[in-house]
């Protein structure tokens, strides 16, 4: 009897062994409890809305609720920190914009984490280019006239950004360096202020999300001179790309992006599952449309591609930060 039992268990074991390596069992078992997705921005903000557009179908696909935890602060760094602080449970993830993964380590005294060793990339979610916007009542009708005016003397033209080290600031410095001009940086705290200041004629230009500029453009108060993506952006298809024009290099490209990340050490099977599910969600035209409405273009990819993007952008923005720091 003992022998028969053993034989039966051995059989069961063999069956289990053949099933396990396909990872189907592991996927079926996970997740067993609600997921927590940390967002370093307040509820209702653009990164938060993007996250909710993705996590709502994700919850249906995983069969478990996905709780969005808003931990705003420090340009999104606090959201990543909070994910890492709860890393032990295997159910804590985060979405974040590029800053906390690329420039934060350079701009802050200490972020409390090392992107290379503490973060496991899952997938890129979406990208957003910036447009170079000027007042409609200004003389700049195209990129060439803007750069010509900017070249008359250093800091002849000014631009607004949402703070030292922000995407808008670094993009403008990258642009100015590529175009061989020097612009005066005026830091603001929000795009609303930058827009008001451009429309009011106080400053000359600003890099901003197409969705921030479009309402003003439609009302005839602003003009968009160019866009920083490699291809025209669907939300503003008429705006020409900056790359290759007015002396700018042909590979000029600067985009904000938003990614889904996990703590380092997360089971690779879980990361693969999340990557597949989010990829499928982002392939849905309805989801793409929702993202586009808030200024994001879906851009899913593999974890490896995200890791490459992080490395490339860290190097690119790092060089810009060096140049800005070297300025008097």
């Amino acid at each position: 009897m003992t022998l028969r039992m053993t034989r039966r268990s051995a059989l069961a074991c063999a069956v289990a062994l053949t099933a396990l390596p396909t990872a189907a069992t592991a996927e079926d078992a996970w997740p067993t409890a609600p997921l927590h997705v940390y967002v370093g921005f307040p509820a209702g903000s653009s990164p938060d809305t993007l996250t909710r557009i993705v996590t709502e179908p994700l919850a249906q696909r995983l069969g478990q609720p996905v709780v969005v935890e808003n931990k705003p602060g420090a340009g999104g760094v606090i959201g990543v920190q909070q994910m890492l602080a709860n890393a032990g449970d295997g159910l804590s993830f985060a979405t974040t914009i590029n800053g906390p993964l690329t420039t934060a380590a350079r701009l802050m005294k200490s972020t409390g984490y090392d992107v290379a060793t503490d973060i496991a990339p899952v997938t890129l979610i979406a990208t957003s280019p910036l447009v170079l916007a000027v007042s409609a009542s200004s003389d700049f009708t195209d990129l060439e006239s803007f750069i010509a005016a900017a070249g008359t003397e250093p800091e002849f033209l000014s631009y607004g950004s949402v703070g030292q080290g922000s995407g808008a600031h670094l993009t403008a410095e990258l642009f100015a360096d590529a175009a061989g001009v020097s612009l005066l940086h005026i830091p603001f705290t929000s795009y609303a202020e930058v827009t008001t200041s451009i429309v009011g004629g106080e400053i000359d230009a600003g890099f901003m999300a197409p969705s921030a500029a479009l309402p003003q453009v439609e009302a005839g108060r602003m003009r968009m001179l160019g866009i920083t993506s490699a291809e025209p952006f669907p939300q503003a298809p008429d705006v020409p790309v900056l790359a290759g024009r007015a002396g700018l290099p042909a590979d000029f490209r600067a985009e904000l992006w938003n990614a889904f990340i996990a703590p380092a050490g997360t089971d690779p099977a879980i990361i693969a599952r999340l990557n597949t599910e989010i990829g499928a969600i982002l392939a849905d035209p309805e989801v793409q449309q929702k993202l586009l409405a808030i200024g994001w273009q879906a851009a899913p990819g593999t974890p490896g591609e995200l890791a490459d993007r992080i490395a490339a952008d860290t190097a690119m923005w790092g060089a810009v930060i060096d140049r800005v720091a070297a300025k008097p």
Partner: peptide
């Protein structure tokens, strides 16, 4: 142009519906 964070939140609610607040 939202005057404060609460207004920005409300604008966000409109944008989700495809309503572009503006002039």
């Amino acid at each position: 142009i939202p005057g404060d964070p609460i207004m920005a939140l409300m604008l966000g609610a409109l944008v989700i519906h495809g309503v572009q607040p503006g002039p």
